[in-house]
């Protein structure tokens, strides 16, 4: 199932056209140069997995795409339009870019259903009944419809993360960003979240995924981006990358995580 989805997407990638384009992006935290001359193009329907050692700039890269982190140089365009600086235009753009966080960040004072309907009602101006109906469909899809009336703290980590994915999907985003979505989860809950992501990829969602889950990269990615020291060291297909990485830095990284 998954493989056929991936192949059909690979066939479609050529016709998909660029959706997210980063050109010469630079960012500093004070003296620390966290992103160095990043050039990256993500095509419609493509699943890009970003891997690399901690502190290499993966999460920062992911967060610059919806401007949760402002950049100090270069340009980022989404669907042809440069990222707006601030204000309403930026909010509108963020509505089109779904984001899933490492620590879920579900609104603690709202039920799961309210978490999912808030954006559609307040940002998309969707009618409440319609928003709730759609939210229930999404919760059904990620397998937690029975938890709709509970509060985030009453759910397990895996359930919370699936709710967070549903919340992002409710905005009908053009692209989904995943910032280490399984890193805060207990091991037995990783699979239930990855399964949702694998299905999403198979359905043709454009995704940028920062993760340490090599299994997901192998199963769903069209492209692997290896980052270290704020730079993109290597861009490759998953097949090539895991068996025959071009750069020494990547080979070194892979030898540390794959052989044990």
């Amino acid at each position: 199932m998954t493989d056929s989805g991936k192949e059909s997407r690979e066939a479609g990638v050529n016709g998909g056209g660029p959706l997210v384009v980063l050109e010469n992006v630079n960012k500093f935290y004070g003296e620390h140069h966290v992103l160095r001359d990043i050039d990256l193009t993500i095509h419609r329907g493509e699943v890009v997995v970003v891997i690399g050692p901690s502190g290499g700039g993966k999460s920062t890269l992911c967060r610059t795409i919806n401007r949760l982190e402002p950049i100090d140089g270069g340009t980022i365009r989404i669907d042809g339009k440069p990222l707006p600086e601030e204000g309403k235009a930026l909010a509108q753009l963020r509505a089109d870019v779904g984001m899933v966080f490492q620590s879920f960040n579900l609104f603690a004072h709202k039920t799961i259903l309210q978490n999912v309907t808030l954006g559609p009602i307040k940002v998309r101006k969707m009618d409440k009944t319609e928003a709730e109906q759609r939210a229930m469909e999404l919760l059904e899809r990620v397998g937690i419809a029975s938890q709709a009336e509970k509060y985030p703290a009453q759910l397990s980590g895996g359930q919370q993360q699936r709710a967070a994915i549903a919340r992002a999907l409710a905005m009908r985003p053009k692209v989904m960003l995943f910032d280490e979505p399984t890193s805060a989860l207990d091991p037995e809950m990783v699979k239930e979240v990855l399964d949702v992501m694998i299905n999403l990829a198979a359905e043709g969602m454009t995704m940028v995924v920062v993760t340490h889950e090599m299994g997901f990269a192998r199963a769903s990615a069209n492209k692997v981006v290896f980052m270290a020291d704020g730079q993109i060291v290597e861009e490759n297909t998953p097949g090539e990358f895991f068996t025959n990485a071009r750069s020494d830095r990547a080979k070194d990284f892979l030898s540390k995580i794959l052989t044990h």
Partner: peptide
């Protein structure tokens, strides 16, 4: 209120006031 709450709110397209 953890930072992540504000980030999640901005990420779904809510304005600062919202």
């Amino acid at each position: 209120v953890p930072m992540g709450q504000a980030e999640a709110a901005r990420a779904i397209g809510l304005t600062f006031t919202q």
